[in-house]
Amino acid sequence: MSTVIDAHNISKIYNKENIPVYAINNVHLHINQGEFTALVGPSGSGKTTLLNLIGGLDKPDEGKIEINGIDITAMSPNKLIDFRLRNIGFVFQSFNLIPVLTARENVEFIMQLQGINKTEREARIQTLFRQIGLEDKMDSRPSQLSGGQQQRVAVARALASKPQFVLADEPTANLDTASASNLLDIMALLNKEENITFIFSTHDARVIERARRVITLVDGRITSDTAKVDTHVQH
């Protein structure tokens, strides 16, 4: 399996009243293609910060992050935007669909930004909506969809750009049990069938249970890294 994400001794430091506080402290992390990984830990442990660093939304103060061998920490903000567009899918806790666009348009928007032609876009939209089981809701606005449906559209949006991996920040936090379960089924299926790499930050036991690798963060450090199938790394 090829390495998709390679984070070398990264740290993120915030200054609180001139005292450095490590949100991420010397973390070393490899994620391989096709992994289904959960980042777990108590609130404030650095899960979201780590996802933001891996996603190129923030830069580490120390260390570097390579995506498919490309150092994203050295990229300019403009290059990073384009890199995110073509390589990283995002699913947010509160869905964050663009409210003025329909479900279909939300998904299509990303492909338009990528410059994909209309025929290809249409074909991918059909496939993605079939995979998330919302073919009949394509023309609904986010306000007309339930939380679970919105998050499924968010997953479709994240996958629209055929990313190297998908980062999902507490994707089930705002969902009821049935919706969360349904969402996890879809993501697990996509992971299994299309070998899409998923990395979640979560508190949700249901997500942790379904993950094949669980990384635990405490105070910005990885305290355990457990692979359910063939690897188990203890820090």
């Binding site: 935007i81 567009l85 995002f90 964050n96 663009i98 409210p99 990303i110 930004l113």
Partner: peptide, 15 residues
Amino acid sequence: QEIGVMMALGMNRIR
């Protein structure tokens, strides 16, 4: 927040 999402998803400054 919406603008932040757009930028996160890959909407560049020109757009």
